[in-house]
């Protein structure tokens, strides 16, 4: 019973996070909806279930390497009361702390400004190494996109982390199967994911990235891992939660008009 309630709460919060994302994007008349919506459950779990920013000065680190999905992170920070409603409504406006792609020099809860893809994982490795020198039992999380792993630097970083058995490092790979223009398989096939990461000496877990029990189980396994870095392949749906956005390459960064905004809001109630 307790478990069922917890799940219900989790999914209800996911809907709220999505509604705030859509609100921001409509107000800004720009931004990336599809790639933000696919990572909602993952962020919901890390920030509300694992509460990684509860004590910000002693936090587990999180880098959103696919920086264009930052509306999801802003929405989470808003729902954590770390940014207020007024700030949220300034997304992408001139002078805002909430830049179109994350900017740590403007918003302190951003650990790394990203946007040029492929760079976050290396910095997460730097965090993991620093925690080892400092003898701190803190984790380093990095969320990358499946299209993003076409960047060569990802594999330089993956090779390093695997070779050095960085067990305090966890990559979440948002496998929504699409990138800017179309499916990854039609752009540059990134499959097979599991074999690639395993060959680089990573522990690979493949889950439904929208399912609370599966996310929960995967992160529990990561926390118990003693030998290797972990990659959680979160199989997700681009545009998840809004019917006309789901699995649509067009909604990677399409502008929401009044009509589609209204439908989206109704679907998220």
């Amino acid at each position: 019973m307790f478990k069922k309630n917890k799940e219900k709460k989790f999914y209800s919060l996911s809907r709220k996070i999505r509604a705030d994302i859509i609100g921001m994007l409509f107000k800004a008349q720009s931004g990336h909806s599809g790639p933000s919506l696919s990572i909602v459950e993952i962020l919901n779990y890390l920030f509300f279930e694992k509460k990684i920013y509860k004590n910000f000065n002693e936090r587990d680190h999180f880098i959103l390497s696919k920086g264009h999905a930052v509306p999801a992170l802003y929405s989470v920070l808003y729902n954590l009361n770390l940014i207020n409603k007024k700030e949220l409504s300034t997304f992408r406006d001139i002078g805002t702390k909430l830049q179109g792609h994350p900017d740590r020099t403007k918003l302190k809860y951003i650990e790394l400004g990203t946007g040029a893809l492929g760079q976050g994982l290396s910095v997460s490795i730097g965090f993991a190494l620093a925690n080892i020198i400092l003898k701190k039992n803190k984790k380093s999380f990095c969320l990358v996109g499946d299209g993003e792993i076409q960047e060569g630097q990802i594999w330089e970083a993956a090779m390093y982390a695997g070779a050095h058995n960085l067990k305090n490092l966890c990559v979440i790979l948002d496998n929504n199967r699409m990138q800017n223009e179309t499916y990854t398989t039609q752009t540059l096939n990134v499959m097979p994911l599991k074999n690639k990461w395993e060959a680089f000496n990573w522990k690979v877990l493949s889950i439904d990235g929208h399912s609370f029990p599966q996310i929960d189980e995967a992160f529990k396994k990561f926390y118990l891992e003693k030998n290797k870095p972990t990659v959680i392949i979160a199989n997700t749906i681009k545009g998840k939660g809004i019917s006309f956005m789901e699995n649509s390459a067009a909604w990677h960064s399409k502008v929401l008009d009044e009509k589609s905004y209204k439908i989206a809001k109704e679907e998220l109630v």
Partner: peptide, 26 residues
């Protein structure tokens, strides 16, 4: 040796690793 990191022929990753270390106060 504990404060030395050989990243191999991978300058891009090395720069990112350096960034992470610097953000942690090193």
């Amino acid at each position: 040796p504990k404060r030395s990191f050989e990243v191999g022929i991978a300058e891009a990753n090395g720069l990112g690793v350096a960034t992470g270390l610097a953000l942690k106060g090193f």
